[in-house]
Design a protein around this nucleic acid. Structure first.
Length: 479
RNA sequence: CGGGGUGUAGCGCAGUUGGCCAGCGCGCUGCGUUUGGGACGCAGAGGUCGGCGGUUCAAGUCCGCCCACCCCGACCA
């Protein structure tokens, strides 16, 4: 891998994205087209995501389990919309142990069907409800075009699957988990997101209603970063998930599902990264603070290294790394850790040892401006404060960027122009034909129908056809 | 699947109208000098030139078929 500068984001965003991932050692291409290897540094980010989400799932009453990778083909076929949605992208196993299988097995593209099958066995009474299960798993969808983290044939995610007594409870669960995702995105990843409902054409195959959180990437395109579905009774009917209610009457359950994937790593990369490389939010960064010792000779080394080790100890409350590699210059290390997005760097050299000080450098503020001298005995306290500040600064910066690239076009011509480089908020009459026209003309789609923009009734005219429109939507090009 | 492109060392590339030992930069290994913003010298290692077949005294180079990957569309967390 070369050591030259990265491509400039403004000039070639997708090349910047690919190179950052490979050079920061987040992931690499696998021998199979469209598959990726998540390398230790990338997986460490995912582990931190998992931890942040998992504790939120547990706090809302969910438990983890594991369902099988293989699903009988016939299961997929039980829910009409579901199979139509997924059929084109299924990987199917037809041979096992050298024998043609009686029934082909699909590699799960998602697990509503197997889990529905099991829920039918487990749920007999209203006393069994609700069932609140999550699984951490890999799934396979045979996509045409792939991109590291954003869309690969196999990806890692969590999928929550719940069953409830009533429609209202299922709806409450669906929105609760959407809130969990939004809270995670904003407060852990510093990624501002818009919660909203998906249009009919963009909803999950088999869902009654799909909700999403949408984020704006550094090139202004939208990224669906998490989804939560109210499945109504669709899967309950397809899989006979029935229970006896309080009046001893047989009822179908109301189910939900919700998922967030390794795609979110891509969201973090593209929300915060700059031309030097990654910028990781402190709360999710595998390494929060890196210490770079600086010395010219053995005598200085003998002074500096112990001081650097002492600093490491003083910072042990954080995820800290001492970069004591001998063969590399400090300048190289600065660039290297900036590429990898470590939020805070500590430099310790002979001058610092003499003054009992250290230089702190913020990743989110490049150059001199982001540096400050700190007394060694105040190092841990200052670093802790800075990490909190950086976390907040990243969120604020991303929110400002999104705001600066979101507009409310007055007419269709303006809409077409605006979505070239940003999000457009506009009224939509609800007609799929209008939605399709925008996509045809501009490649932009309805990302979602934001809750925030539709709290109060504010009727208007459809940006496309001029018909009366009750709701405002976000149009944007998307990943 | 349609349109375009590329396959030569880990990565990026050069290789003339076919010609002898297949090269360059970065990276890698060893030794020495360096080290407050991407150090330098010397010595090394590393190749079925994407695959198969053909033309030829001779193929990285010409011809045919195949394969893989990338970009643009249709599909998508």
């Amino acid at each position: 891998m070369n050591n030259e500068k990265l491509p400039i984001r403004q000039e070639n965003y997708s090349e910047w994205y690919n190179q950052v991932i490979q050079r920061a050692e987040l992931a690499d291409y696998a021998p199979v087209r469209g598959c990726m290897v998540v390398r230790p540094y990338g997986w460490a980010i995912w582990e931190n995501i998992q931890k942040a989400l998992d504790e939120r799932f547990k706090a809302t009453g969910h438990v983890n389990a594991a369902f099988p990778l293989f699903i009988p083909m016939s299961f997929l076929e039980k829910e009409k919309e579901h199979v139509e949605g997924f059929a084109p992208e299924l990987a199917v196993v037809t041979i096992g142990g050298g024998q043609q299988l009686e029934e082909p097995l699909v590699v799960r593209p998602t697990s509503e069907t197997v889990i529905g099958h099991m829920y039918a066995k487990w749920i007999k009474s209203y006393r069994d409800l609700p069932v609140l299960i999550n699984q951490w798993a890999n799934v396979v969808r045979w996509e045409m075009r792939t991109r590291l983290f954003l869309r690969t044939l196999e990806f890692y995610w969590q999928e929550g699957h719940t069953a409830h007594e009533t429609m209202a409870e299922a709806q409450e669960e669906t929105l609760r988990m959407l809130d969990v995702y939004a809270d995670f995105a904003i407060n852990e990843a510093a990624v501002p997101v818009v919660k909203g409902r998906k249009s009919e054409s963009e909803k999950f195959a088999g869902a009654a209603t799909t909700y999403s959180i949408e984020a704006m990437m550094g090139d202004t395109r939208a990224l669906q970063s998490g989804t939560s579905h109210n499945l109504g009774q669709n899967f309950a009917k397809a899989f006979d998930i029935q229970y006896l209610d309080r009046n001893n009457e047989l009822q179908h359950c109301w189910t939900t599902s919700w998922g967030l994937s390794t795609r979110f790593v891509g969201a973090i990369i593209m929300t915060h990264g700059d031309d030097q490389g990654l910028i990781l939010p402190p709360r999710l960064a595998p390494i929060q603070i890196v210490i770079v010792p600086i010395y010219k000779n053995d005598a200085e080394k003998a002074l500096v290294l112990p001081a650097a080790e002492a600093a490491q100890k003083a910072l042990s409350a954080f995820r800290v790394k001492l970069d004591a590699r001998e063969e590399l210059t400090p300048g190289f290390k600065f660039n290297d850790w900036e590429l990898r997005g470590v939020p805070l760097r500590v430099e310790i050299g002979p001058k610092d040892v003499a003054n009992a000080s250290a230089m702190l450098a913020r990743r989110d503020v490049p150059g001199r401006e982001g540096k400050q001298l700190v007394a060694l005995d105040a190092l841990a306290a200052t670093a802790g404060n800075l990490l909190v500040e950086i976390q907040a600064a990243l969120l604020a910066r991303a929110a400002d960027f999104r705001q600066a690239h979101t507009s409310m076009p007055a007419d269709y011509a303006e809409l077409q122009q605006v979505v070239e480089n940003g999000w457009a908020v506009a009224h939509w009459c609800g007609n799929p034909a209008c939605e399709a026209k925008v996509k045809e003309d501009t490649k932009a789609t309805i990302r979602n129908i934001p809750f925030e923009l539709n709290q109060a009734a504010d009727p208007g005219k459809c940006i496309v056809c001029g018909a009366p429109a009750a709701e405002k939507v976000i149009f944007s090009r998307a990943y």
